Simulated assay, not measured.
Amino acid sequence: MTNHLLALSDFSKQQLQSLIVRAIMLKNESLEGVRHQQLAGRSVCLLFEKPSTRTRVSFESAMYRLGGQVIFMSAKESQLGRGEPLKDTARVLSRYVDGIVVRTFGQEVVEELSKYATVPVINALTDLYHPCQVLSDIMTVIEKKGAPENLKIVWIGDGNNMANSWIEAASVFGFSLTLSCPEGYEPNAAVLEAARKTGVGDIRLVSDPAEAMEDADVVNVDVWASMGQESEQEKRVKLFQPYQLNAALMGKAKDDAIVLHCLPAHRGEEITEDILEGTQSVVFDQAENKMHIHKAILELFIGGSTEVTNQ
């Protein structure tokens, strides 16, 4: 198994399933009062070029709850903002910490860091992928609905990094994924082609969101303009309006369908208040699960846990 977590397609179904099973176990043990100390004496550097609330706090809390220590560095506080070569940053940090969690813009940043680092590099978000988030989302799906292979999962809205990681997940786990995005805002074509070439999972693009929502078990939405796209906000609000998750659109899904949103949510844009706060919404359970999946990820990659099957 690779020593880094850069994209979901780098792993087998068994490896990812095992990671989620471990996260659920750690969650349940925490609820029972078990104090985890597997990473006592270990440290991780959170190297964030993009701001964050949930990703930062969930990774920090996960590391602390495993007994480890966290060093947080923004671009302003690191040499990344001053032009130091990534290969130098990777080699120096590898001598100080036991792992590097990176939240940045280009996927090439985490790839180069992983090439030169001698400690695990974990992708906490790039413009191309958001693998840790989608793992926590699938964990939530399993808790609420069972095995994803038996479900119809739908993505509505921008074909962004989340959509790309959902596509990779479908090609690994083998579930049905239907995406509905405005023309010109589809997921990355290379990611989609690579996923379809595996022959695993039923991955479809449907232009009409109402058609995509038919008989959906899981409905996933995200903001219409991500970080770095603020200048497109007004244009996107107009273009994406038919893709708003509201009562009419939810009426196309199954009565027991669940709603996912990785947050932060722009209420009244990609999702209405009544849907976000409704009985089908599991977004806050989903947000909590980020911490638990991060515990499992840190335990495996930094602690070399034998609790997770490396197949």
Rank of each mutant, 00 (worst) to 15 (best):
N3C: 08
L5K: 09
Q15M: 14
Q17M: 07
Q17C: 11
L19H: 09
I20G: 00
V21G: 06
L26H: 04
K27A: 07
N28Q: 15
L31R: 13
R35Y: 06
S43Y: 02
F48N: 02
E49K: 09
R54D: 12
T55E: 12
F59Y: 13
A62R: 01
Y64T: 12
R65V: 01
V70K: 03
Q79I: 02
L80D: 01
G81L: 04
G83K: 07
E84L: 01
T89E: 07
T89L: 09
Y96R: 09
R103L: 10
R103T: 02
F105D: 12
V109S: 03
A117G: 10
A117T: 04
N123C: 10
L125G: 12
L125S: 12
D127A: 14
L128H: 09
Y129Q: 04
Y129D: 04
C132F: 02
C132Q: 01
C132K: 02
Q133V: 09
S136F: 01
T140M: 05
V141S: 01
E143H: 05
E143T: 05
K144P: 03
E149C: 06
E149K: 12
N150I: 02
I153Q: 00
V154A: 06
M162F: 12
V172F: 04
S180P: 00
P182M: 05
N188T: 03
E193H: 13
T198H: 05
G201R: 01
I203L: 03
P209V: 06
V219E: 03
V223W: 00
S226K: 15
S231R: 11
E234F: 06
K235H: 10
Q241I: 07
Q244L: 03
L249D: 07
G251P: 00
D256Y: 02
V259L: 13
H266F: 15
R267D: 08
I271L: 09
D274M: 07
I275N: 08
Q286C: 11
N289P: 10
I293S: 07
L300A: 14
G303R: 00
T309Y: 12
